[in-house]
Design a protein around this nucleic acid. Structure first.
Lengths: 129, 129
DNA sequence: TCACTAAGTACCCTTTAGGATACTGTTATT
DNA sequence: AATAACAGTATCCTAAAGGGTACTTAGTGA
């Protein structure tokens, strides 16, 4: 996806969906809503994502000003991703999408399995004491 | 897109984005938020959509229980699309996405041209007195 | 000396999304 | 007799999204 500023849209919704659509972007932003995360932490939190896809999606979000990428020049490399101010303004929208998705899944009995993600996050919290 | 109830998701956001992602779905729901519209009215309101794409997107939304399709057995045919109860619960989410898109476009000077749509809607209002 | 880590690239491939064009059937209008 | 309106299908095609595997780099610990 090229940067949004190069295009013409016919509705603000078209713009929003272009910025955060696709399989991974919303979930990435969701995981960053509370604190910055490194590449590897994000990767573990998104079961099934490949390195290539994660890199690509992070670049898109960065190009459109939603996240910030900070490189620490150490070995092995450390790169931290966090929400920009604009990115933070999207969190309330994410929250409403999240709630709506949950209520939809209740109503229509769509399966949502978050156990793996939760296990990963708990393990990381333990490692940091 | 197959129906959401056949899949397994790892996050409610993944479900939401699967239901309303893509180029047209949100905009269709947006135009239906106040009143039902017929196929041809929707088509005129979505500049650039082809018949095939519009049909396809409407079927997806119908299969997932977001819109309702009512066929009037008259000639020429008349088919009206409206939001279901579940579809209506998505309108507040749409509203927040709409607002966020507009504020983003203000900040980053992304071009949004709604003049054509507005013209079409005004013309139709005039025709109905 | 070897293996391991983090954060990626490079290259290739498959699947899905999206789009162009032509066609259908019935009736009213020109 | 030809054309337009409406709500689509059918067929074919291109572009974009998404994914798999292998490779890189510099230092650290076994």
């Amino acid at each position: 996806m090229s940067a949004a500023s190069d295009k013409i849209y016919r509705c603000p919704l078209e713009l929003s969906i272009d910025l955060i659509g696709g399989k991974w972007k919303c979930v990435i932003l969701w995981h960053l809503r509370k604190a910055p995360l490194r590449f590897s932490q994000l990767k573990r939190r998104l079961p099934g994502v490949t390195q290539k896809m994660l890199t690509q999606q992070l670049r898109d979000l960065e190009d459109n000003g939603l996240i910030y990428r900070e490189v620490y020049p150490v070995v092995p490399p450390k790169v931290e991703y966090s929400l920009t101010e604009v990115g933070k303004t999207f969190v309330p929208v994410l929250r409403s999408m999240y709630k709506w998705g949950r209520s939809y899944s209740d109503k229509f009995e769509v399966e949502i399995d978050t156990t793996l993600q939760e296990t990963i996050i708990k393990e990381e919290l333990l490692q940091n004491h």
